[in-house]
Design a protein around this nucleic acid. Structure first.
Lengths: 226, 226, 226, 226
DNA sequence: CATGAATGAGCATTCATTCAT
DNA sequence: CATGAATGAATGCTCATTCAT
């Protein structure tokens, strides 16, 4: 009898383990998203420093305590926003590199589009990412998160550099090493975004990021090949 | 002792009668500088968010209350740091424009030096300025200060644009309008500074700002003229 | 599989029909022990104030909610630890009193051993019991638990007093009433334990409880009889 | 002129420094007392764990922030209560030792009075001191405070031991070393206080500490000399 | 002008407890 | 019975700002 009983128990347990774990994980990921989305909204509305955990909790229709079940602290919650955008950048660049519908030169030209898409993907968070990166907030992050950020960041740069290397084998002659080019392109991109952003904040006015970005990359591309 | 004391009184009275307004003003300006310098030091040491008004007061060897006699609030105190650097940038660019030892082409090349000097002048504050500009802190500033900032900022851009216009009359043919070029150059500069800064913070490592900046401006300059 | 499943159902039904109340009770008591043991371990490791219900649940390999099926609240859970030690003390003293291998004088001498055994039985919890007894925590306890504690406590004192009364009939002449002696002995015991404990915490050093306790009881015994 | 001026300045400054410093210190000490008294009252009323810093601030008719100008944190505030009582004990014992109106035997007998006075001085805080000493709270204290506590504590013990040593030279023959006697007396004292305290808390009833203490010390004294 | 003690609103974080599953 | 995710009140502590002296 005890054998049958324990078997029943086993079966139930197995059934539970099978289906439940993945549903749990999906549920958990959904909650994280829910919080992330709320955080982004609050942050856009009230600014980084003025947003409180309670604001975010209210926006997410959760209690403050719940936030801490999914994020270690406020800094990590904010950092996780940056993570998402870096992941997106990474994916876009990987796809670009892997794609076979473009020749090396075209791929290089397409980097600009990828970067602009990143901005489109989440303008506010992109801005905040610059905040984060140049700030003391980095010191409070847990190492796994910090490592993810640095790795994604350096990975994106590496892919860009590789695209330039491929371009060189495709016949282009660049004036500078691919690694340098990659990081300067990224700097140019962030610089323009920041400038247009602060400019719009100071003077109001309309969004002229796209044309400015086009001009900047146009000049840059022209100066790049010899 | 009482004799000395009464004499002191006389002297005070005389000083009052003389009533030199300008000395007052100069004195006042000296105090502001004293505070500004202290703020900069504290800020460099402890980071923007972690610095308190009391820290600054202690560094300035003043009391917290005194800070508020010279600055409306913490945000204005910090913003005033940015002001100084913008003033420096402005002066440097004005001098460059007014100088007659360089021809238009050389002047354009000298812009890079001017920008790098701005960074040298006060690296930490330059970083913080980017923070400030792209942030909610701008909303708390009093209009006079905000106007000063925007005016200095736009003025610097205008001078740079003018230098390019002069260069055009000096024979250079630019691919883009001088105003656009000016703002893209500024963006490139800030972007590179931010990148190198955050990179050093994340990965440690040595300061390679200068070579990166050289490379960036080199590429850019090459792409600029046709 | 469905066959097995339906059989499981049968078994469950049978179990219900058999409905052994006592097994339920024994099971319930086992769970309480499981929790109590876990609480003690956590408490010893992290200290009274720092231990959370979740810590205890994790240690007991149960969920936090389950703890509340067996204990009304955190205070009661902790109080139940004290209960166990008082029960032990009670049993030891009862046995001592009932035993017929010692004469009255020897029994009195054996009290010291009993008390020391209580300390050995669970040092940390004994300490915590003093905390509890002299504290506000008592106010939050439910009356049944509180009554158990006071009853066990007073019972132990009564047995000790009885031992002294027996000793008087055995020829010893005590300078003070047995009830007073009993409570002073208990006080001496707790005082020495607390002192050695705090001393070890403050100054580090090795455990010298036993010799101190011996000396204390030695002096006390000498002063007791006339 | 500048000499006279600077002299005037010096005189003013000296006058200020002279009178002000001591007044400041006295004022500061007064505030600490104010807070300490309030803390003691709140603590007596609501118990150690349930008292909040805000409660204490309200009782002291101050704001929460002010408390932190005088005490590093909650633990230190509470520890400072213990400090006062240890200081009192120390003074009482020093006076006892220094006094020349009692012979060595009488001094030893007077220890009991001193200890009882300590209890009278501040019963609640004495209790809390036992809490503190046997608890994890010790770990959070700053070293100066911790050192003061341990030093005062050990000092008191040393004085008591010395009194017994003096008694030995006065002709008394003790069964145990003076150091051991001192610590056992202290243990006996604290044990009795705790017992009576918890007993009154559990059973209500009137204060019978004095007679119990008398009895305890009576027995102990009798056992002490040979 | 300068002071610096006092303020008190504000916030991140914790954790005992509950309840739908 | 058991679970454990969610709760949300509670709290220690901070710090920009004020104001009586």
């Amino acid at each position: 009898m005890s054998i049958i009983y324990s078997r029943c128990y086993e079966i139930n347990r197995l059934q539970k383990i099978m289906g439940i774990q993945e549903r749990k994980n999906r549920e958990r990921e959904r909650r994280r998203q829910q919080i992330t989305v709320a955080a982004k909204r609050v942050f856009s509305r009230k600014g980084f420093a003025k947003s409180t955990m309670e604001d975010i909790a209210r926006e997410a229709e959760l209690s403050p305590g719940t936030l801490y079940l999914y994020f270690k602290n406020k800094d990590e919650l904010y950092a996780s926003l940056s993570l998402r955008i870096l992941q997106y950048l990474n994916i876009r660049l990987k796809d670009l590199k892997a794609g076979d519908d473009l020749d090396p030169r075209q791929k290089i030209a397409a980097i600009k589009e990828a970067l602009y898409d990143v901005y489109q993907f989440d303008p506010m968070v992109l801005i905040s990412m610059f905040h984060l990166q140049s700030s003391e907030a980095l010191k409070n992050l847990s190492s796994p998160l910090l490592e993810s950020i640095t790795e994604l960041s350096s990975n994106s740069l590496k892919i860009m550099a590789q695209l330039f290397r491929d371009g060189r084998q495709g016949g282009s002659i660049f004036t500078h090493p691919p690694d340098d080019i990659a990081k300067i392109i990224w700097s140019l991109f962030t610089g323009v975004v920041l400038w247009e952003e602060s400019n719009r904040m100071l003077n109001g006015g309309k969004d002229v990021l796209k044309p400015t970005l086009d001009a900047a990359f146009d000049i840059f591309a022209r100066g790049l090949t010899r």
